[in-house]
Structure formats: C-alpha cells, structure tokens
Design a binder for these strands. Structure first.
Lengths: 210, 210
DNA sequence: GTCTATAAGTAGATAGAC
DNA sequence: GTCTATCTACTTATAGAC
C-alpha cells in the first residue's frame, strides 16, 4: 500500500474514532509511524487530506443516489435503500459529526456538500413520488415537502443526535434504529396497511437487535 | 453596566454572529475595548465565559419547560409554545451551531446539556399526551415515541440544518418556518381536522412572512 | 480594576541532509 | 521518499506596574 493511500486510510480511521478537530498533522504522522515532514511531502496539510477524503465520499454517495432511479417501489425497497445511504454516511461519519465547523472552515467543500444534499433531497422526493405512484403511500402535496425535509433532517443529523444522547455507540444498532425512525415518518401516510407495516418493522427491528 | 456583564453580553453577541470557534480571548477584549489582561481578571478564560452563558441559558430554558405543565391543550397553544422554545434557543444559538465540538470540549456542560434535552423530551411527550387527552390528536403508542424523537431532532438541529442550506439567514422567518415544520409532523395524527388545521397554518405562515 | 509586557504552549509549515 | 531540525504564527495565561 502506497504511503499516500495509507495516510488517507489512517486519517479516516482517526477522524472517525477520535474526532477530526482533535487530530493534528503530527498525530496522524505518529499513527502512521512516519515523520511530519513526510506527511507534508504527500499532502500540503490536514486540509488536503480532508479534501481528498471528501472526494471519495462525494463520488460514492453520488453513485448510490443515482442508483435509486425507479428501482424503489415497495416499502421494503425503501427500507433497504435508506439503509445503504446511512451506511455510506457512517463510513465517513467524521464529516457529519462536526458539519458546522467543517463547512465554515472549508467554504469550497461547503459548496460541494450543499450540492450533494440537494441531490439527496431530490432523491428522497423521487422516492416518495414512486411510492405514491405505486399506491403504497398517499400524501397531501402540501405535506410532501415537509416530510422530505424531515427525512433529510434525520439522514443528516442522526449521528450528532446520537452523540448527544450517549457517550458510546454501536454503529450497526444505531443505523438500524435510524432506518426505523425514518420509516416511522412514512407510516402515517400508508393508510390501513401502515399498522401492518409498522408491526413488521418492529418485528424486524427486534429480531436484528436482540 | 459592570464590566463582567459587558463581557458576557458582547461575548454572546460575537459567538452568535461570528461563531464561537472563531473568537479568541483577545478578540473579545478588543471588541470590548479592554485589555486581554482585564478580561482574564474577570474570567479565567473563554471557558469560564461559555460556562456562565450556559448557566443563563439553562435557567431560562428550565423556566420555559416547566411552564408547559397542563397549559397546552389546543393546537394553537402548541404552536405558540414551540415558538417560545425556538426563540429561547435562538438567543443562544451559538451553542446549537457547534453542539458536537462544544460538548466534546466541555464534558461537564455535556452532562448538563443532556439533562436539559431529557427534560425537553419529557415536555414534548407531555404535550402530545395532553393533546391526545383533549382529543386533538390520536396516535398509536408505538409511533408516539418516534414522533417525539422527530420533534426533538427538529428542535435541536433546525439551526445547523439551515446553516447547511443557506449562507445567510433571517432569524424571524427561520423560526416561523421551523414551527411550521414541527406542526407538519403532528398534522397526520389530527385525522379529518388535520387538513383544516394545515390550511390555517399555511395561511398563518403566508401572512407572517409575506 | 485595568493596563502593558511577556512567558509558555501548540499547530502548521518548510529547508536541507540522506 | 523519508528524515531531522527548525521557524513562524497564534492563543492562552500570568506577572507586575499603575
């Protein structure tokens, strides 16, 4: 593995586990067993590392978002799809843990992040449209936008909300609970079948978390 | 106005407008027209200032939360009450802009903040219970907790979400939109009257924002 | 209470040898 | 590519005069 890739790999690990703000360029080079000078040979600094990590995240997320076009037509599909999005976010969770600080510090990333969020919003809207057309949900158009915003809120701040509620966390369980939380937002619009779907979801949730 | 109070006042202003992370002890003393040494005479550092500001916020918020006991029985009351909570948060918005960083940096504040959030959650649950008993809403008990969490999410991360979507913001309009957003979460559980309530809310919203 | 001056500590960045 | 050594810049915090 080339040093450049090792730097990215270890940085992502450190940022996710210990928090981005806490790690200095020297910390990263120590973790890698290389000198700070060497680190600066490969990346101009922590900024460049973060930008490179964002490149990777952005590309992966765009692939996921574009993969939804017309392929999510049942509530089960929806469940799985939300799951996939959350897992991708979890892989780069350090971004979402300090969103405010990071976007203030890197205005260029803020622009790109906003564009990504916009595409995410369009995807969620499309998802709700597909579910409507398939007759799975029925929602007043005035409430549809509000629901979309709520789902966006959940998808964006689930990690921060969890950090607020507990000190430690179990990633798999947290993702699971968050999918459930998002699905609960949709249940009221499923009419009579909503309660059945909810029951099935709870079963599914209980089974997976023991 | 005593210097101590002036420091707190100007610090809150700076933190809210420019961001807490960006302001150093020297910046604050410059803004006040006093020396850094003098600042350190009154407060041991930025930490002590932030703690003092949190004291104020915590006390004000607790008064608001305790004021809800049994006094919110209509959907209009609920609207007003959410409004009051959001305005209080807005006054100390710098806390909510960098929650993650702040709570990591000040573990003692994190403990107190979590307790405050817990009381907030109890208040929201109580609100929903009161609305249920008054026959205003009807909600499956399994969905009630999820709804509570969603409202908490909205109340806690509305400021960060807005910062993500725009560069600048109009406080009054943002608060208004957020109240609307929260109310939209409750509408599905209002049955037939929900649509009327929604229409009235939209009217109200349009009127207030022009 | 308030000032000036300065110490002490930390993060970021580069130069030059190997 | 990688290292050691060092330098700059900045923030916090304190000492001592007024």
């Amino acid at each position: 593995m080339k040093t450049r890739d090792r730097i990215l790999h270890v940085s992502l690990l450190l940022f996710n586990e210990e928090g981005e703000a806490q790690q200095t360029a020297v910390d990263i080079s120590n973790a890698l067993g290389i000198s700070p000078g060497n680190l600066y040979y490969h990346f101009k600094g922590k900024d460049a590392i973060i930008r490179a990590l964002f490149d990777a995240f952005e590309e992966e997320m765009r692939v996921i978002l574009r993969g939804s076009r017309g392929s999510v037509t049942s509530i089960e599909d929806n469940w799985v799809y939300i799951y996939i999005i959350l897992e991708e976010i979890y892989d780069f969770r350090f971004f979402y843990r300090n969103l405010g600080v990071l976007l203030k510090r890197y205005p260029d990333l803020a622009v790109r992040f906003r564009a990504l969020v916009a595409e995410q919003r369009m995807t969620i809207l499309g998802l709700l449209d597909d579910l409507s057309k398939a007759g799975v949900i029925s929602i007043d158009p005035r409430l549809r936008d509000a629901l979309t915003e709520q789902i966006m809120l959940a998808l964006t701040f689930w990690l921060e909300a969890d950090a607020l509620n507990r000190q430690e966390h179990d990633g798999a369980d947290l993702i699971h609970r968050t999918v459930f939380q998002v699905m609960c937002l949709i249940v009221p619009y499923m009419g009579e079948t909503g309660f059945d779907a909810l029951s099935r979801m709870i079963d599914h949730y209980e089974r997976a978390t023991g």
